[in-house]
């Protein structure tokens, strides 16, 4: 074997060049992103705590200068994951589009494949949503964010969320995005196993059901917050 074949970077590049390599990258980054989505949801659900201060304390903990290094490390890793996930998917999309230059006059689809076939636009919309979400509730570019005592390390998350979601357009967009995220996650969570080569006639159907349940739970959890604000369940 030549030295070049043994070089791990070279091997990684060659691996990524193959479509299966790209799918593996999407699966691995997908796992990370799903983990983040779940963690983020659990953090958010603290908004239902009897004490409105609960979620603000959590935010303060994250924003504490002592947490800065791990926080930015995690953010960096997540950003890298997003970049890789998106890059791989765009490359695959371009390749796959080129694989059929002339389409069908009439094409039917299999109903079960709905979530899978919509990955391509559920992905970008969820992506756009994430940008909006960061601008909205992290950066404060959509509407000014309140801090407790004017200290940027202690944001008043409770108030910001409730004020933010009182706008029906914003809430509507959040809910729509969460439904798409749900579909995206449903397909992503079982197909990542398929991509890395794990499939079994007995367990794969269960895996699909599990993925569906988890995706729906995530969607319910996330959608509940704007709904709770709109219905006045959560208020200042």
């Amino acid at each position: 074997m030549s030295a070049i074949a043994i070089n791990p970077i070279y091997r990684a590049v060659r691996f990524y060049e193959a479509p299966i390599g790209k799918k593996v990258v999407m699966a691995v980054t997908g796992v990370m992103l799903v983990g983040y989505v779940i963690g983020h949801l659990l953090g958010n659900l603290q908004i239902y705590s009897a004490n409105p201060e609960q979620i603000n304390r959590y935010a303060a903990f994250l924003h504490n200068p002592a947490s800065a290094i791990p926080l930015w490390a995690i953010r960096g890793v997540l950003l890298l994951a997003v970049v890789l996930h998106v890059t791989a998917s765009v490359q695959l999309w371009l390749q796959n589009r080129a694989a059929r230059p002339i389409g069908y006059v009439k094409k039917d689809d299999v109903p079960a494949s709905y979530a899978a076939r919509t990955m391509l636009w559920s992905g970008p919309i969820v992506g756009a949503f994430i940008v909006f979400h960061v601008l909205h509730l992290t950066v404060g570019a959509v509407l000014p964010l309140e801090d407790i005592n004017g200290n940027p390390n202690t944001p008043n998350v409770y108030e910001n969320v409730i004020l933010g979601f009182q706008n029906p357009w914003v809430s509507g967009f959040y809910i729509l995005a969460m439904i798409l995220l749900c579909m995206h996650l449903y397909h992503g969570m079982w197909s990542m196993f398929q991509s890395v080569g794990i499939s079994h006639p007995r367990y794969t159907p269960k895996l699909k059901t599990g993925a569906a349940i988890l995706a729906i739970l995530i969607a319910i959890g996330n959608c509940s917050i704007p709904i709770a604000v709109m219905t006045g369940l959560l208020h200042l």
Binding site: S113, S191, T204
Partner: peptide
């Protein structure tokens, strides 16, 4: 220059010999 699999499952649905996605 075939495309790649994105785990959609349309192939399995039309395969005349019921080959599975596995």
């Amino acid at each position: 220059l075939f495309g790649s699999c994105t785990n959609i499952g349309e192939c399995e649905a039309v395969c005349p010999k019921d080959i599975k996605l596995e």
